[in-house]
Design a protein around this nucleic acid. Structure first.
Lengths: 222, 222
DNA sequence: TACTATCGATAGTGAAACTATCCATGAATG
DNA sequence: CATTCATGGATAGTTTCACTATCGATAGTA
């Protein structure tokens, strides 16, 4: 197919597809003339993957490029998968604040990880993200979130277990690599939106007197 | 205090604080002269809150303003808290894709919510976020994520329960409003980073032969 | 043959989040 | 009390990011 069809089938404008190719997110088509090239289903699929990472996963173009590069690297091994996982985590440019809250938060993260017996490298950028979040909570005096943190950790541990189970069902490393990338990026959106939905449901359940409402548990009101 | 001290104590540059005031995220100081104003601890706290929403929660300035406006509104009631919750969810500007994947995803979301008996308004923007995520997975043929979705829903339901428990411990509505805002925004970061950490830990646990390594479960290697 | 599509290259756009400069004045210091 | 620094409000400028638009030569198509 030519680029027009690629655009129609993906829903992405031609100039944007060209932009992705320039940026190295999508490979060039097979050249058939000075101003002609041919694309195939792989290109289409790749464009959909880029959109998933960028639009749903919220990755920057640069981060997406790095993730895809690692995913593509021949001889995808577990180490590379780990790096791809790291590249999927939003990075902070600035060094961590070295104030009281920052140090406290870093300590909390270390303790939590030790407590759960998790094997996590110190280079895992999620350590930093978590520490930043805890530091922000601490600065705001929201320390009563801490007990929830333990709950969250236990819960995500269980989730990770079933997730890895499902991942290991994949027939080959290439397929696993793609699942790691997609599930990690898109899974964040799934998890956080489910949390929002559950929060509303739970609040409604708690604060609605029993017998109030239509009783089918669905409060769709637009 | 004056703006310089506010800057020093928050770690935010003076021009940025001025910018936040212009944008209505932080209230003006109490004027004491043509070019003088006085600020207090509330201002400092507010700046920290803005930073938490923007930096950790990833909210845009516009979204943060809306959230804070709702949080501030006198007579904070549960309805307002719900609106604040909605304002914390990242919005899509474009209408949902009406392709097969989009429709399929919307159906999945409705079914899931019905299945769990969740009372969730159809206006909850998290429905859309979740549908977009599921649509992306479907377009990529990653339908084996679906069983995990059920697991995720059950899990976030339990989390929401303990979270609302903790929330209702708060003495007043104002304090609850702040917790809703902060926990929702920062909680996303906590949850997703914990998921990353758990994922690495679980992968390591599964793929490391028993007895391999130092056995303390901590694989910090930098 | 006319018209549309495509190629790669280059330049332009619009939003977002700051950042810099200015001037009149107030505070602080020797 | 003179000098220096800080402040407030206003306005304009900067940087980054993710696209978009245009161009001239060439290719497919009705």
């Amino acid at each position: 197919m030519r680029i027009g069809e690629l655009s129609r089938r993906s829903g992405i404008p031609v100039p944007t597809i060209k932009f992705y190719m320039r940026e190295g997110l999508v490979s060039q088509g097979e050249r058939t003339g000075p101003n002609q090239a041919r694309y195939d289903g792989e290109h289409l699929r790749r464009i959909k993957l880029v959109r998933a990472l960028v639009e749903v996963g919220g990755l920057s173009i640069a981060a997406a490029r790095e993730v895809l590069r690692l995913m593509d690297s021949q001889g995808t091994d577990l180490d590379t998968l780990g790096k791809a996982q790291y590249a999927l985590t939003p990075r902070r440019e600035q060094p961590a604040a070295d104030d009281e809250a920052g140090e406290w938060a870093a300590r909390q993260v270390d303790e939590l990880i030790a407590e759960r017996g998790w094997a996590v490298k110190s280079s895992n950028p999620a350590r930093r993200t978590l520490a930043d979040a805890l530091a922000a909570l601490h600065r705001l005096g929201q320390d009563d979130f801490l007990p929830l943190l333990r709950e969250y950790a236990a819960t995500t541990g269980r989730l990770a277990s079933v997730e890895v189970d499902a991942l290991l069902e994949r027939p080959d490393l290439i397929s696993m690599a793609e699942a790691v990338v997609v599930w990690t990026a898109v899974g964040d959106a799934v998890l956080t939106s489910l949390r929002r939905l559950a929060h509303e449901a739970e609040t409604t359940r708690r604060l609605t007197p029993p017998g109030d409402g239509d009783g089918d548990g669905d409060a769709r009101e637009g």
